[in-house]
């Protein structure tokens, strides 16, 4: 039995390396993307074998719901402007090579610092779990023990989506119309899938309190559902008033900021959750993060269709 598992794990590892090499070194961009989609799938299997179902869920949602779509769009846009774009200067290439090499060396050095077969902090988290508001270790780390990290992660996401929206608003990079003409097949498919996506992302959010799941996975899944709706011409996010969109995009960060401000004023530590009501606070934060993540995902893909600068309001 043990031998069999080793065979499975080695096969997954070999397949991952082959897929990574193929997607990096295939001359055709489209083939690269097909390989990369397969890479995400096998990576999810690898996370499963590494006993990290939370990561497998995230890999599945991001890989199947976001990166494939973004890469396909990007490849099409590159093909459309080919001949116009310039190849990066050799100085730029050299600098990026040096930066990449530096990061690589730092990562290897950090890896060598880790003692082999270290138990990690899993046992400590398991022991302290009764002190937290939730029953799942990963969620307790994300929203209780290390809530500050999650706070900054939501801020990074917000920064990323702001950057993308600003670039798209000012450079008009998107040249491809983002919508299919009305088709009974597509609207039938979306009509079937959209409710399932909605229910399942709600389930994942709820599951996060006691099992693998949580705000990020639920948010990405919900966002992927939003992309499907936009594709079918059902404009949910792209017709939001821009003020509402901005607030909803910042809901996760705003929730964290409000919470830490209130706690500091009440004389507690930053993000030191009170014993009573901690569960409600954690769930409210999860909902806020999920909404922000979902809108971020849709905005990244459907970007310039979001009318951030409507002409009638500009002088």
């Amino acid at each position: 039995m043990i031998g069999l598992e080793v065979v499975f794990d080695v096969s997954v590892a070999v397949l991952l390396v082959v897929l990574a090499l193929e997607s990096l070194y295939t001359p055709n961009l489209f083939t690269s993307i097909a390989f990369f989609i397969a890479f995400g799938l096998v990576m999810a299997l690898a996370w499963v074998r590494l006993q990290a179902p939370d990561l497998a869920l995230a890999e599945a949602a991001v890989g199947a719901g976001l990166t494939g779509v973004l890469l396909l769009d990007a490849a099409r846009e590159i093909a459309a402007v080919r001949g116009v774009e310039r190849t990066p200067r050799s100085m730029v290439r050299l600098t990026s090579l040096l930066v990449a090499a530096g990061v690589g060396v730092a990562l290897v050095a950090a890896l060598l610092e880790v003692p082999p077969r270290a138990a990690g902090l899993a046992e400590a988290v398991r022991e302290a779990l009764p002190l937290t508001a939730v029953e799942h270790g990963v969620t307790s780390v994300l929203l209780d023990f290390r809530a500050l990290d999650t706070f900054f992660e939501t801020a990074v996401l917000l920064l990323a989506v702001i950057t993308v929206l600003v670039l798209q608003a000012h450079q008009h990079v998107r040249i491809i119309p983002w919508e299919l003409s009305a088709s009974p097949v597509l609207s039938g498919l979306v009509g079937l899938l959209a409710p399932v996506v909605l229910v399942f992302s709600g389930y994942l959010l709820w599951a996060g309190t006691h099992a693998p799941g949580g705000a990020f996975q639920a948010g990405v899944l919900l966002g992927a559902g939003g992309i499907l709706l936009e594709l079918a011409g059902v404009h949910t996010v792209s017709r939001l008033p821009r003020r509402a969109l901005r607030w909803l995009l910042s809901l996760g960060v705003a929730g964290f900021a409000l919470l830490s401000g209130t706690l500091l004023l009440a004389g507690r530590g930053l993000l030191e959750l009170p014993g009573a009501g901690a569960r409600t606070i954690v769930i409210a934060l999860e909902i806020a993060i999920a909404v922000s993540v979902a809108l971020t995902v849709v905005s990244l893909v459907v970007g310039s269709n979001l009318r951030l600068e409507p002409p009638e309001q500009e002088p």
């Binding site: 999810a44 499963v48 179902p53 199947a64 494939g68 396909l72 299919l180 599951a207 992309i227 499907l228």
Partner: peptide, 27 residues
């Protein structure tokens, strides 16, 4: 490990998304 069924369900639900975008570009 029941959570793995959730991972499978995500892949199953979202399988159509990339293909739809592919068809969009082709169209």
């Amino acid at each position: 490990r029941p959570p793995l069924r959730d991972v499978a369900l995500i892949f199953a639900i979202l399988a159509a998304l990339v293909l739809t975008v592919f068809v969009k570009h082709a169209a």
